[in-house]
Design a binder for these strands. Structure first.
Lengths: 258, 258
DNA sequence: TTGCTCCTCACGTCACGTGAGGTGGC
DNA sequence: TTGCTCCTCACGTCACGTGAGGTGGC
């Protein structure tokens, strides 16, 4: 009994050490000293050895600070809040809760994106473009061509994201035309042909006819767009060069297109 | 048409500027340059003005880096992952997803704790102690006494959390005894009495009788504990000093308790 | 006596941000 | 020409952590 009483009195008179306080609140000793420097927690009195000795009031304050800090509130803001009146405090809490909800939403979205990292291209292009690429895959377009398309769409999205939305509508529209689908697949196949393949002239002529018909059939006047549907496919980059495609581009540039 | 074609070719040959790339990926230009320094993103070639010019491959890489960074993966780890094989990468993704789930849980808990910041004491004491304090409130114990109890329990929890669990069981047990409840409330009321109040001797005697009976009625041999139930109440701290309580402590210490 | 806790500096870390001082592109 | 973008340093920031070098408590 006497022992217990003495421990009790001792505890109340001497107070908690910084380690006891930190463990109680679930923070590190270094964090407690940091909060002292940032004046979020009053410096308690020192005992004979220069040790800090804390009261229950310090523990309560520390738990408040820790809770707010864990919620992502900057330490400078926490100091203001601790000095604020109950109304301002309650309003701040409401704001903090909203930001926590927003962070929860963000985390959920991040989780979905992380899951797609091992998967396809959905992370790198807009949903509309991803749908378009999926459509190409369905039609039997080669992986090489699909990757070329993806890269071009990424560049276009980066340069003028607004235009991409309109272009993709146009592209999906063209894909509904069987002749365009046939031309697309043949261009895809032509990638591996040699530059003097006899089929190239016929393909070029057929493509030209389609462009003319297509432009005529559409009143929207968005001329440049349709043209690029084919142009884009044959504009090879450095990494993926095709002699046959170069030849197709050459033929196209020699015809009077205006 | 020619304009569009030129823009297309231009875009593919010159590549994206750092600003276009950053906007596309949803990061800052400073972050992109930081990723270059940390070797998370290859330095692209420069154009005639010394500007960095990026390809679609850079954009894809940057989106990967950004997604992993948002998931809280340290940049040094991201660099390892980008160089890892698909199996190691998939395993890492699974681990990252687990940590995201854990963070979601933590955030939910933080949100609950934030909501309690304006409320009562539940944030600062264990659930068992909080229940005990609620019980005292139900019995009509004064706010002052409840706050004193809370502070003592905080200190006890900080010093020896294991013991607190046993003590609180004991306290709730004693509260089931009507005589203890009466004594508790009278001690609470005695706080404001003067030191020479005639009721003090009677209260001290009644308390002593209760302690003896209570100790006798319990076989568990946890002697020191029961005694502290009353002792604790009258051990006033510096801030809350009561002359009457000091007198009660004096009377108690003069009786031969062994 | 030994290991654990406590003390105070000073500097480090992580992921960028800020700002100076200057050039290039439309 | 003007404002916007880009460039490279160098230093700052936020919330602590690390580590040195030393003393105190059980």
């Amino acid at each position: 009994m006497d022992l217990v009483r003495r421990r009790l009195v001792d505890m109340r008179q001497r107070g908690l050490t910084i380690g006891q306080l930190a463990t109680y609140a679930g923070v590190t000793v270094k964090a407690v000293r940091h909060y002292h420097r940032r004046r979020l927690l009053q410096e308690p009195p020192r005992d004979g050895s220069g040790y800090r000795r804390y009261t229950a009031a310090h523990a309560i304050q520390l738990v408040k600070v820790k809770t707010l800090a864990q919620a992502g509130v900057p330490l400078a803001r926490i100091r203001q809040l601790l000095a604020a009146g109950p109304d301002e405090f309650a309003a701040a809490i409401a704001g903090i809760d909203r930001s926590l909800q927003a962070r929860l939403e963000e985390l959920r979205r991040t989780r979905e994106r992380i899951a797609q990292l091992s998967g396809g291209d959905r992370l790198f292009v807009s949903p509309a473009v991803a749908d378009y690429l999926d459509r190409l895959r369905e039609l039997g377009v080669s992986d090489r061509a699909i990757q070329m398309e993806r890269d071009v769409w990424i560049l276009m999205q980066a340069v003028s994201p607004k235009r991409v939305a309109a272009w993709i509508v146009d592209k999906l529209d063209a894909l509904r035309d069987p002749e365009f689908r046939a031309l697309y697949l043949e261009h895809d196949a032509a990638f591996a042909w040699s530059a003097d393949d006899p089929r190239l002239d016929a393909l070029a002529a057929r493509t030209e006819r389609w462009i003319a018909t297509w432009q005529f059939s559409r009143q929207h006047g968005a001329g440049p767009v349709q043209d690029s549907t084919i142009l884009q496919l044959v504009s090879s980059s450095d990494e993926t060069f095709s002699p046959a495609w170069a030849r197709l581009a050459e033929i196209a540039s020699q015809r009077p297109s205006e």
